[in-house]
Amino acid sequence: LINVDNHLGPEMKSTGEVLGVAGTLEEALYKGLIGAGYKMRKRDGVFITVRNSDKAEIGEIAKKYYDLGFRIYATEGTADVLKKYGIDAVSVKKIHESKTNNTLTLIESGKIQYVISTSAKGRIPSRDSVKIRRKTVERNIPCLTSLDTANALADCLKSHYSQHSTELIDINHMREEKLMLKFTKMQGIGNDYIYCSTFDQEISNPEALAVRLSDRHFGIGGDGIILVCPSKVADAKMKMYNLDGSEGK
């Protein structure tokens, strides 16, 4: 639709829902965002422009993206706020301030992976905020119009989850109770791993389990997990999974 603002109102935010089921909030959010079409890229830049009422909250959220290694771009007023949080934000001119170097040309440059825009919703096509959000649709760039969503996305990007380390759950056969996992944690010369035997227990998704258990704040804590598995040529064999869910080589 031409000249229509893609900023969603409350009545439309619950339309087209996706479901993410997991053992942790971060993994469930990751699944939900992937299901909604997000590519979950962790490179290049994030462009931020927020209304005055959101400037008190945007600093902590932007800091998460900055700490992940994203280059932060912002309109002048937002950039001034972000610099107070130690964020070296690149100030970008508004559309009417420059014809060759402004927010639209930045979005068209290919440097931006995410746009956070909470400027007031409106039906006036000439507004900068409407033009920016329209341009993100044309360029297929995720445009976050809510600080809650922007914060949730940052937390998911910060986690070690990926499409290869999330557990596939059949909602038709979900467990009614939690399973008891037998493990032993061992450490040596600065490395610590969580050992699990598969001789007497089944571990269906070691990639997701490695991410969850290796978390030193909310899991057991470690550099990864090691599965002790049956072998046809020896007493046992081991499979190692790093804390990001990737299999050790």
Rank of each mutant, 00 (worst) to 15 (best):
D5S: 02
N6R: 06
H7R: 07
L8G: 04
P10W: 03
P10F: 05
P10A: 04
M12E: 15
S14G: 13
E17M: 12
V18E: 11
G20M: 02
V21P: 15
E26T: 09
Y30I: 11
K31Y: 09
I34Y: 10
G35R: 01
A36K: 05
A36N: 01
A36L: 09
Y38V: 09
Y38N: 05
R41C: 10
D44G: 07
D44E: 12
D44C: 09
G45N: 03
T49I: 06
S53T: 14
D54F: 07
E57F: 11
G59F: 11
I61L: 08
K64E: 04
K64Q: 06
L68T: 06
G69C: 08
Y73L: 12
T75W: 03
G77C: 03
T78R: 00
D80K: 14
V81D: 01
L82Q: 07
L82D: 08
K83I: 14
Y85P: 05
G86T: 05
A89H: 00
I95L: 14
H96P: 10
S98E: 08
N102V: 12
N102T: 06
T103N: 03
L104Q: 02
I107Y: 14
E108W: 13
S109D: 14
I112Q: 03
S117M: 11
S119D: 13
G122K: 01
I124L: 08
P125K: 02
S126H: 10
R127G: 05
K131F: 08
K131G: 08
R133H: 00
R134T: 10
R134H: 05
R134W: 05
K135N: 03
K135Q: 13
T136M: 00
V137H: 01
V137G: 02
E138S: 02
E138P: 02
R139E: 12
N140F: 12
I141D: 00
L144F: 15
D148V: 07
T149F: 10
N151C: 07
N151H: 09
L153F: 08
K158C: 10
S159I: 13
S162F: 10
S162T: 15
H164A: 13
D170L: 01
N172M: 10
N172S: 08
R175S: 10
L179D: 15
M186W: 11
G188D: 05
G190H: 03
G190Y: 07
N191T: 15
D192M: 13
S197A: 09
T198F: 08
D200K: 13
Q201N: 06
E202Q: 14
E202D: 15
I203C: 12
N205C: 13
P206S: 06
E207T: 11
A208T: 04
L209I: 00
R212N: 05
H217W: 13
G222Q: 00
G224T: 02
C229L: 12
C229I: 15
D235Q: 01
M238A: 07
K239F: 12
Y241F: 03
E247H: 04
K249W: 14
